[in-house]
C-alpha cells in the first residue's frame, strides 16, 4: 500500500505543475485589458499613458517569461499574486470566502450520501416493485433537474410556507453549529440532489450485480442470515464502484456551487468565480481555477487511495 501511495503521489506532482502552466497561459489570452476596463470604470475616459503606468505598476508590462517565473516561484510559497480589481493578495481574498464553500461542499456530500445509501439499497432489494420505480423516477429526475432551478423552487417553497429565507449571515460553524447547518441545509440539498441521484443509481446497480454472484448464493446456501449476506458479503463489494462515483461527482458538485451560490446569494468562491469573469480580473480567475483544479486532483488521489485500500487487487496491479 505504501508503494502504491508513493507512486500515486509522484504522479500528482507533474499534473499539478501542468495545471498551473496551463492556467497561467489560458488567462493570458483573455481578450480585453483588465487595467483599461478598471480605469475606465473608475475615471471614465483614460489616456494610454495612464494605462501603461498602471500596467507597469501591477507588473503586467514585464515580459511573459518573467511573469511566469514569478508566478511559479510564488506558488509553492502560497503567494498567488494580487487581485487586479481590489489589489489585495489573492490568498487573503480567496481565504475569506473559501470556508463557506468548503463547508457547503462537504455538507452537500454528507447529505447526498445519507440520502443515497438507503434509497439505492432499498431500490436494489425491492427491485421491480413500485418502491423501486418511485426511487428510479426520483433519481432520474435528479440527473435532469438544473440545480439552480431546484434551488429556486426550494426558495419559492420556503417563502410560501415559512415566509422567509434562513438568514445567511448567521454564526460560524463552531460558534452556533445548529444555526449554521440550518442555514446551509437548503443550498446543500439543492446542489446535492443530483449528487445523491448519481450515487443511489450506482449503488443500486452494483448491489444488483453483486447479489447475482455465486458467492452470495453460497453464503445463502450456508444458511447465513439475509442481513449478514447483504451487509457483509453484498454491500462491502458494492461499495467499491460507489466510492469512485462519490469522488468523481465531487467535481460536478464544485461546478454546482457556482450556480447554487448565485441562487442563494452565498458569498463563496463559486460566486467569486463568476464575478472574476465579469470584472475581467485575470489574476483572480487564475487563482480560483488553480484552487479548484488542485482540489479536484487531490480528491481524485484520495479516491484512488481509498479504492486501493478497499480492493487489494488495485494496488497489486500497479
Amino acid at each position: 500500500m505504501l508503494r502504491y501511495t508513493a507512486q500515486r503521489l509522484l504522479l500528482v506532482i507533474p499534473t499539478l505543475i501542468a495545471v498551473a502552466i496551463l492556467v497561467f497561459f489560458l488567462v493570458r489570452v483573455l481578450p480585453g485589458d483588465p487595467v483599461e476596463v478598471k480605469l475606465i470604470g473608475e475615471f471614465g475616459d483614460v489616456n494610454p499613458e495612464l494605462i501603461y503606468k498602471e500596467r507597469k505598476r501591477l507588473g503586467l508590462e514585464d515580459p511573459l517569461h518573467i511573469q511566469f517565473v514569478n508566478f511559479m516561484v510564488g506558488l509553492p510559497q502560497g503567494d498567488m499574486g494580487i487581485s487586479l480589481v481590489t489589489e489585495r493578495p489573492l490568498t487573503e481574498e480567496i481565504g475569506a470566502r473559501i470556508t463557506i464553500s468548503i463547508e457547503l461542499a462537504f455538507f452537500a456530500t454528507l447529505l447526498s450520501v445519507i440520502i443515497a445509501f438507503p434509497l439505492g439499497t432499498a431500490a436494489a432489494l425491492y427491485r421491480g416493485t413500485w418502491f423501486d420505480y418511485v426511487i428510479r423516477i426520483i433519481t432520474i429526475g435528479g440527473l435532469a433537474v438544473p440545480s439552480f432551478w431546484f434551488g429556486m423552487l426550494i426558495i419559492m417553497a420556503l417563502l410560501a410556507t415559512v415566509g422567509k429565507l434562513p438568514s445567511l449571515d448567521t454564526a460560524g460553524l463552531f460558534e452556533d453549529p445548529m444555526a449554521n447547518l440550518y442555514t446551509l441545509f437548503w443550498p446543500a440539498l439543492s446542489v446535492g440532489y443530483r449528487y445523491s441521484s448519481v450515487i443511489a443509481r450506482m449503488l443500486r446497480s452494483s448491489i444488483l450485480e453483486v447479489l447475482a454472484e455465486d458467492y452470495i448464493r453460497t453464503a445463502r446456501a450456508k444458511g447465513l442470515y439475509e442481513r449478514i449476506v447483504i451487509v457483509k458479503h453484498g454491500m462491502r463489494n458494492a461499495l467499491l464502484p460507489t466510492v469512485t462515483v462519490v469522488g468523481l461527482e465531487f467535481a460536478f458538485l464544485i461546478g454546482g456551487l457556482v450556480v447554487t451560490e448565485q441562487v442563494f446569494n452565498i458569498n463563496g468562491i463559486g460566486k467569486m468565480f463568476v464575478e472574476a469573469v465579469q470584472f475581467n480580473d485575470m489574476t483572480m480567475l487564475q487563482g480560483l481555477v488553480l484552487i479548484v483544479a488542485t482540489s479536484f486532483v487531490l480528491i481524485n488521489l484520495l479516491v484512488d487511495l481509498l479504492y486501493a485500500a478497499l480492493d487489494p487487487r488495485i494496488r497489486y496491479q500497479a
Partner: peptide, 24 residues
Amino acid sequence: QRGIDLLLSFPIIILAILVIAIVP
C-alpha cells in the same frame, strides 16, 4: 492521455466559463 488527464482535472462548468471568458 496525459493531456486528457490534465483537461479532466477541470470541472466541466469551470472549463466552460474559462473558455467563455477567452473566446470573443
